[in-house]
């Protein structure tokens, strides 16, 4: 069983700050992490390797410093890692990104056929959930999104049964390998890396693939050129036309403030008053 896991290095969003005056993102000092959703994908691939043997290859497209994320993935037990990095990828939207990653996975499959491709359900910086489906369509793989559990794998018949989170319930789906799975969060728990894996990860000779190595033939499909969407502007939302009415009672207790608030609200928001009456 050969699984390819696509990961992304993202800024730890909990620590992103916006400059109060210039409204620009302050990137300095924000630690980079593996997109947390991708860890569920990686763990699931490692479990398949535990059960069926084979290997796990982890890939990412990004700047050279994304090497750190790949080494981290290796320390958890991934066997191989490839960093797809090329200046011509800059400005890629999800369509261009899925083109480059699909090309990379095809190159990998030339050496060792790929049975499964895993991604996280989405990233925490882009939040689009579009790259997984994009790779599947480009490679003509069966697509299984929001998978909460792999129920069974039949290696001889090359069949897999999964539970997929749908609206209002869970779909149990059966399909054929190779397929692409986007893993739902909370579906498993990432293991701790072993000492030998940590040493191996530190010593691992990272593979850097530029666009040629990744087998990309059509340069009009990558980077800014291959991206149908562009960001027109970045901005902060404006306040409502009026700011909040501040409730304060001079020398008053919290109880006085609460009573004052309810009186004001009753006068201005009959809709809320009606809702409260329903609950009385």
């Amino acid at each position: 069983m050969h699984s390819v896991v696509c990961i992304k290095q993202v800024p730890d969003s909990a620590q992103i700050r916006v400059h109060p005056v210039t409204n620009t993102i302050m990137r300095q000092g924000v630690p980079a992490i593996i997109n947390p959703y991708d860890l569920f994908a990686l763990e699931e691939a490692l479990r398949l390797k535990d059960r069926f043997g084979g290997k796990v290859t982890v890939i990412t497209m990004g700047p050279p410093q994304a090497e750190v994320a790949l080494r981290k993935a290796l320390s958890f037990g991934a066997d191989d890692a490839i960093l797809v990095t090329d200046k011509s990828f800059a400005g890629a939207d999800t369509l261009a990104t899925s083109y480059a990653l699909a090309a990379t996975i095809r190159q990998i499959a030339k050496e060792s056929p790929v049975d499964m491709v895993f991604t996280g359900k989405q990233t925490i910086d882009g939040d689009t959930a579009q790259v997984g489906p994009g790779i599947a369509k480009r490679m003509d793989l069966q697509l299984l999104t929001y998978v909460s559990r792999i129920v069974s794998v039949d290696q001889d018949k090359r069949e897999i049964v999964v539970e997929r989170r749908a609206e209002g319930g869970v779909q149990v789906l059966k399909t054929s390998l190779p397929c692409l799975i986007t893993m739902l969060e909370g579906s498993n728990q990432m293991r701790f890396g072993t000492m030998p894996d940590m040493f191996r990860a530190a010593r691992y000779e990272m593979k850097f693939w530029d666009k040629t190595a990744a087998g990309i033939e059509d340069v009009t499909k990558i980077g800014l050129k291959g991206s149908p969407t562009v960001v027109n502007k970045v901005f902060t939302p404006s306040p409502r036309s009026e700011k909040a009415e501040m409730i304060a009672v001079e020398g008053g207790s919290p109880a006085d403030v609460a009573v004052a608030l309810l009186a004001k609200m009753a006068a201005r928001f009959p809709l809320v008053e009606k809702e409260l009456a329903k609950r009385a």
């Binding site: 800024p11 969003s13 992103i16 700050r17 969407t229 027109n232 502007k233 970045v234 901005f235 902060t236």
Partner: peptide, 9 residues
């Protein structure tokens, strides 16, 4: 950017 700013696409 993880919900720190808005953008128009």
């Amino acid at each position: 950017f993880g919900g720190s700013l808005l953008c128009t696409i």
